[in-house]
Design a protein around this nucleic acid. Structure first.
Length: 268
DNA sequence: TTGGTCAAACTGTAAC
DNA sequence: GTTACAGTTTGACCAA
């Protein structure tokens, strides 16, 4: 049974008030369950007096339940949102390509069919939905089933949609992080290549001096031979920071994070 | 009109 | 059994 809300000041969310199970699997049955959920939603929509329509010019549902994370989520959903509009997302129609989020003054007709002859229609989240999801993501990058249900209910989305949004959001975060790390590694690589070239030149220089017949106590006074204990890259690793300013001690995944166990530059 | 980009949604798999 | 994740598909949108 769906716990209907209208003109909400508080949302009584008890597990089991949905027809769908709390767990939401990613198997083909998911879609059946989602369709069941949609059918239930459709039934609700056919009963306007019971239908839950959440507008942002109205107070958002007050969700006071549970402890810890649930309370955080409740606070989040209670927050006033930056712009006024419907929380209800739209299923974009391929023929009408107007972005619903740019027309937030219009109430989206959710009664439109979400599927057109089997072809899926793409949901476009509203700014408000995205905002709430983003804020929720800032607090926790994963959702437990209860939080998922709360968010889904408050945003008028299917739990599966909330779940998918969080998955995609985590993927985007990871992708960005990888791009940043990749750029830093590239810088490290360039610095090491440069160091390598310079060290080779130093070695050649020392070889030349040695072969010139100078006594060891003289050529050992050259900076290249005597003053340097470590090569620059290792020195950087020793201090924990490289030329790029990257704290390599923190990124243990990189090959530059660890200083070599033994280190000697022997010149033969 | 078309190609690129973004994001929602889907699929398969592995970890727990 | 459930969930997260990587990879993929697909639709919407935008600029040239």
């Amino acid at each position: 049974m769906v716990h209907e809300i209208s003109c909400i000041t508080s949302l009584n969310l008890s597990l089991g008030c949905y027809d769908i199970p709390i767990k939401h699997r990613l198997d083909p049955q998911d879609h059946d369950r989602d369709r069941d959920w949609e059918r239930n939603q459709d039934k609700s929509r056919q009963q306007p007096e019971k239908r839950s329509v959440i507008k942002l010019d109205q107070p958002l549902p007050s969700l006071i339940l549970g402890f810890g994370r649930d309370q955080d989520l409740a606070k989040l959903i209670q927050q006033p949102l930056p712009s006024i509009g419907s929380v209800v997302s739209s299923y974009s129609n391929s023929t009408s390509a107007k972005r619903q989020i740019d027309d937030s003054s219009k109430e989206v007709d959710m009664d439109r069919d979400e599927f057109d002859g089997g072809a899926r229609k793409k949901l476009r989240l509203t700014k408000e939905q995205s905002f709430v999801l983003e804020e929720s993501f800032k607090q926790h990058t994963t959702l437990n089933p209860k939080e998922k249900l709360i968010l889904a209910k408050s945003l008028n989305l299917r739990p599966r949609q909330v779940e998918v949004w969080f998955q995609n959001r985590r993927a985007r975060t990871k992708l960005k992080q990888n791009e940043v790390e990749s750029a830093l590694l590239k810088k490290c690589c360039e610095a090491l290549t440069s160091d390598n070239l310079r060290l080779k030149r130093e070695i050649q220089q020392l070889k030349d001096i040695k072969s010139s017949g100078l006594p060891a106590h003289l050529y050992m006074q050259f900076p290249a031979a005597g003053n340097r204990i470590m090569c620059p890259s290792c020195e950087r690793n020793n201090s924990g920071f490289g030329d790029s300013g990257v704290d390599t001690t923190k990124s243990s995944k990189t090959p530059y994070a660890r200083a070599p166990k033994s280190h000697s530059h022997q010149i033969s």
